[in-house]
Amino acid sequence: MSEIYILIEHRQNEIRDISYELLACGRKLAEEHNSTVTAVILGYNTEKIVEKIESQAHKIMVFDNEVFKEFNAETYQIALADLIQKNNPFLFLIGHTAFGMDLCPALATQLNIPFTTDCLDVEISENKLRVVRHMFDGKLAAKVLLRENPSYMLTIRAGCFPAAESNLKTEIEKLDSLVSETPDYRKFLEYIEAVAGDVDITKSDIVVGIGRGIKEQDNLAMIEEFAASIGGVVACSRPIVDADWLPKDRQVGSSGKVIKPKLYIAIGISGAFQHVAGMKGAETIVAINKDANAPIFHEADYGIIDDLFKVIPVLKEKIAEL
């Protein structure tokens, strides 16, 4: 088996956590199959990033050019397509992130490499490649076999391969890119930071999260009262923000805030992985949901399978009686 390549993801001069996870995934597969891991960095003034991942891969390939200062799916695609065509790695791993989702399908399609997305696990046997992924709102897992080919491309879900220490001897190779300027058809303009609101949900010890199960905006008041009575703040999953019932800065999840409170109470939240990514670091997690199959119960320490509208008023009373 030839090499495993992984794409290092960085943003605003900071390496993203997914990069360490991809390195860990790559090393695990390389150990199992007597292969090597090559980390590919596209960036500008990349010394710090190279330093951070040194010893985590057998080789680091660096395209250091101002054109790669910010992620751009089009410039990345041109440079990576050329690299992959020249070196034919067995496997190319990319994060299933906002960058990876924008890049992988186009890059793999251009190269006619079988690919799939949002993988939780990877199995290789006799050049056959299988992945595990989730479907149907995370309620089922699927084993997927890719079309047999000398090379493959995958995007890997965050949180599936824990970052780990490593002390590999790393060879560093600097490469010149085909791309020297940003194509006119896609130009990066700027990053826009989220606006801070009145409540910082990352600072509270107790967070009460609400989701679709709340049904109507008017029911928010009941949750606000409950949260206030236990000294917590109200946060939410994506559908509540999509419906404009709460501002974006209350959203817990990969595209919102990552919180680590002492207590997180998920009310009427099904537990999509994007939400779980934002709250799994809570010390104690409670889930209240009438759907016994909701994936949130796989994350919770304590669960109540019941109608939230019945439970919350009573729970508020019971806590007040303590």
Binding site: P114, T116, A141, L145, L146, R147, E299, G303
Partner: peptide, 23 residues
């Protein structure tokens, strides 16, 4: 590019303590 070979219920990574009974 791919064939779905099987669907299964994902293994439970963390055992939740369910609190049952009336509300």
């Amino acid at each position: 590019n791919s064939v779905l070979e099987e669907l299964y219920v994902p293994p439970i990574s963390k055992q939740v303590e369910l609190l049952d009974g009336t509300a």
